[in-house]
Design a protein around this nucleic acid. Structure first.
Lengths: 238, 238
DNA sequence: CTCTCTTACTGACAAAAGTCATCTTTTCCG
DNA sequence: CGGAAAAGATGACTTTTGTCAGTAAGAGAG
């Protein structure tokens, strides 16, 4: 269960093109590359904890990680799920605050750690990169505003449908006219994404299944009828 | 009801010290100052609309503005309430997207408009300012994450209490050992902040009043026992 | 000043969702 | 392989909250 180090040159990283580092000059890439540490994590391991101070940036090279907050009663709320190419923990790093959430590995992951200093150095001498980071952060914020409004006024059924659609957009693998959500989520995790009880998710999922909107494939969900599901997500009665 | 222009030099603006522009060099301040347009708005007027493209930044000089999203059924969710010194509409501006929310005046307001170009110019030639903006945006994002988790797992009662405490922190005026929330909010607006129905807010407020936690003072709310109210906001039974 | 329109309030009821208890199935490890 | 633990599923019940309908009170316009 111990963490295992590995190493991949950033220039050879297959996810570079999906990440915010894409477009950096060779000089900056090599600065990042020379200072990073890459670690393999097993499912269930934690990357960072709520309340601790960030010392750098995590950049996903493989696997899936959930970032979540725990409330007083131990109920989890998942803020987002990081996939290869994503940055992890940049919010707290940039605002110079403590982590406000915990990150735990959902599917065995390879994650590179870039020390704060190196990241900030590249950020400061590269206005275009800075601009793209700001743009990304503000875009994220827009998504959160959307989620807030959704959480405030949509029913659990609508939210579950909406989140399934969203997961399809991000993790969907097309095949046979349907989409497999390539993410082994427990019902409990799905409940933590939607913001509801596990039992409610189970019940609604089996309703969706009965209605022919989805099927289960091992631990994964296949979206059979994205259109109808999207209708369930809306507030439109029609 | 027509908009009325007015003008105040940024250097003389009493809210400069509270704003992100604080700390800018005289050159940059005057660049902002020379390009801004200041307008007085009446209660109920709109500053910008969801779905339109931002053309600049709004900087509050007086009054209060609500920024909210409307869902399909016309239910409002208030994302935040801007006060003097606050920037308005910077998220969409920085992410180069359309506005995702609408801004409407709650209390007669004076708002300065800074064209996109001037703002970006100052931003680009002033790394320290850029850094502070990034920090502010990321801090905001932390607050939204907090709200998200709260909305997902707290009861309406807890959320109302939590929001009253929050309003107290931002708009509270101390006096006689209690705090007056200096913000003329309708029950409907308060419901849109908490994410619930107007009737529910009315009922809970009158419960809080019966329990001696708050009183009403005209359209405003006075917090009598912030400690007890904070307990109502927590999930702790003790 | 009064009429109207909006906002505040109250009650009754229905629907949604959470909780608890129990059972089954799957997964994980020694 | 087998047994324990975790995850999934289902039912019964309670609580919370939203909705609808109707009344009262306050604010604004003429």
């Amino acid at each position: 269960m111990a963490k295992v180090e590995f190493n991949i040159a950033c220039t050879l990283c297959e996810h570079l093109k999906d990440s915010l580092f894409n477009g950096l000059g060779p000089e900056d890439i090599s600065r990042i590359n020379n200072h990073k540490t890459c670690v393999q994590y097993k499912k269930g391991q934690n990357i960072f904890y709520e309340g601790t101070r960030p010392t750098g940036l995590y950049c996903m090279n493989g696997g899936k990680v959930k970032v979540y907050k725990n409330n007083v009663q131990g109920k989890e709320f998942i803020i987002y799920i990081a996939k290869p190419g994503d940055f992890l923990g940049y919010r707290a790093l940039l605002s110079e605050e403590f982590y406000q959430a915990t990150a735990t590995v959902l599917e065995d992951a390879k994650i590179c750690f870039i020390p704060k200093e190196s990241f900030f150095e590249v950020l400061q001498k590269n206005p275009l990169f800075m601009k793209r980071v700001v743009q990304a952060v503000c875009h994220e914020m827009g998504i959160m505003e959307e989620k807030l409004a959704e959480l405030a006024h949509k029913s659990v059924r609508e939210r579950l449908a909406a989140n399934l659609i969203m997961l399809k957009e991000t993790y969907g693998m097309e095949g046979e006219g349907s989409f497999l959500i390539d993410l082994a989520l427990s019902r409990e995790d799905l409940a933590s994404i939607v913001g509801t009880a596990t039992e409610t998710v189970i019940r609604l999922l089996s309703e969706f299944k009965t209605d022919g909107l989805i099927t289960f494939e091992g631990k994964k969900i296949r979206i059979l009828d994205a259109r109808k599901l999207a209708k369930q997500a809306d507030l439109i009665v029609a």
